[in-house]
Nucleic acid binder design. Sequence first.
DNA 1: CTGCTCATGAGGTACGTGCCTCATGACCTA
DNA 2: TAGGTCATGAGGCACGTACCTCATGAGCAG
Lengths: 347, 347
Amino acid sequence: MNEIELKRRATVHDVARAAGVSLATVDRVLNGRAGVRAATAEKVAAAIAAIGFQRDLSASLLARGRDLRLTFIIPDGSNEFMASLADAVSARADQALAERMHIQTRRVRALDGAALAASLDALNPHDCDCAIIVASQEPAVVAAVDAASRRGVAVMTLVSDLPGTQRRLFIGIDNVAAGRTAASLMGRFLPQGGSVAVIAGSLHLADHIDRLAGFRAALEAEFADIPLLGPIEGHDERSETQAIVGDLLKRHPDLGGIYNLGAGNGGLVAALEASGRGGAIRVIAHELTEPTRRGLRSGAIDVVLDQNPDGEIRAALAAARTLALGDNRTVVADPIEIGIFLRDNLR
Amino acid sequence: MNEIELKRRATVHDVARAAGVSLATVDRVLNGRAGVRAATAEKVAAAIAAIGFQRDLSASLLARGRDLRLTFIIPDGSNEFMASLADAVSARADQALAERMHIQTRRVRALDGAALAASLDALNPHDCDCAIIVASQEPAVVAAVDAASRRGVAVMTLVSDLPGTQRRLFIGIDNVAAGRTAASLMGRFLPQGGSVAVIAGSLHLADHIDRLAGFRAALEAEFADIPLLGPIEGHDERSETQAIVGDLLKRHPDLGGIYNLGAGNGGLVAALEASGRGGAIRVIAHELTEPTRRGLRSGAIDVVLDQNPDGEIRAALAAARTLALGDNRTVVADPIEIGIFLRDNLR
DNA sequence: CTGCTCATGAGGTACGTGCCTCATGACCTA
DNA sequence: TAGGTCATGAGGCACGTACCTCATGAGCAG
């Protein structure tokens, strides 16, 4: 009656038997070692497909006495979200180690393509299986990603993608959708006759570009009469963003809303509070961090769109494990959801 | 220069050495076998704590030639969310198997405590390490959960909790917060002078009770002048809910909003569309399923609060692995976020 | 002291995989 | 035909843990 041990996982032994070869040959094929005729390798590959063999990652790591080595490269600076991303990484480090994943984190100057590229160039497959980077779209970074990939260091992008490169996977939200959502909420909340200003961090960041595109498209489609100011680049810096917002508020008395699709929210909130126009302007920002939380509570910010750094790190770790199986099929990660936060559902 | 193999994970050998006992004794302690004096067990426990030993789950499962056995018990019926929960389980089955977790799913009649209890009673530790159930608050279920726990079958609750029992963990959203969020959005979106009706599935479900409490409290605090109708129980059934909504619309011409905190949304949307008052009533519902998606697109529903079944299953599997380490410390799971969906950010 | 129980140690095998050595035999070339 | 190269097989050891058997010695009751 009990259906215990119905199915047994296929092992390398099963593959050997099915392919009519020895264990050693299966091993040579699986681990890409030389000394196997193409025809024999074919037989083995066919057997693997036929019986649906999947390498046992844990046993493999155990046998090699080796942990998976991951390197996170995260922008440094006054961007609170990046800090929380780094925090999320260290919060997972212990759990990851228990699953034989060794995590290293490096911080590089934000929006500095050369620094990111240099950091990538320093990685070699001997001590890093996979690099997880927050990419900016610059030629040096593109080249470094492809070079790392050729060297045998898999690369995944986090938060901001780098399409058209050898990066194996992007972990992050659908930023076009995020921009659309911002537009739709802005349109609903905006008082009659106001204009909307858009602030971005950098137009070299894929995520910011995507948000802007989504925001523009949705606003045009649903609220075509709302005038748009910007985008203005605040470089994700607190002080620069503060200056921009202060200036906007001073020079545009008709300003009804601000969409900050980048970081620097400390400056955003400070400028709003200093202006005395706090609750009168509809403000949408990104990422639940200390300044945006404060802004939500005080009413300076109406909506925060969030991408849940902790969930992203979790997804990245899971994806890295899958990548490590050496699967050359496309790896898919669980999608990261866009969180919408109002004053009322603050975590 | 390279910092390879800085730290080695502690093994049972290290524990034996640190405690000054043999491997066999460490093994007896770790696996709760008899034949160890209390004083010796103490020494081993102290050594484990001192060197921070953590059992390697993968190696353990490998050695036992045994998968972790998990049983999901999910309500059956016309509740689309429960269907998507079951789908999420089967979607993860393969991946779980690759990590040596064997998943079984059972469906039992919704809101039928006796059926759920019987299903739990049928589980024995020989073929089930952990049961994951969607609980309803009934004495038979409480008893069955505690009995299973005593028998050696760990129990976790999913979606709807069962506090005051031996259940090891609850995986789900903060339903009080969800109710508060619904109230806050309803208050903002509601036209002047309308009343709000609340529909629940069952007041035996902890999640529904919590949502109701949160909704009431927040509405009272922020929008005390909005009259409340209900709660009316729709038993998470499509047709019953449809009848309730049709009746509400007919008998309350001043009705401004509906908060359906349970399921049966197919009926909700059908009744709204049939009434011709589609877009005029502010409607908030739970769970992104086929009917609520349709409702969002057509404008019949304004907001859907979602709890991401796929993420819940993932969290449940991760938690089950942690539980299996036999850790008697409290296990914590990643929190599940409340998703807020408007027409604009539909996945 | 004898005979017993019981805590503990010693050491083996197994799990699935990686990596190593060595032997064998087929085939090619000079 | 001799010598070489090369594909393949056979088998062992290791990783961290589980589980088994057997030996040893301490402690105790009679």
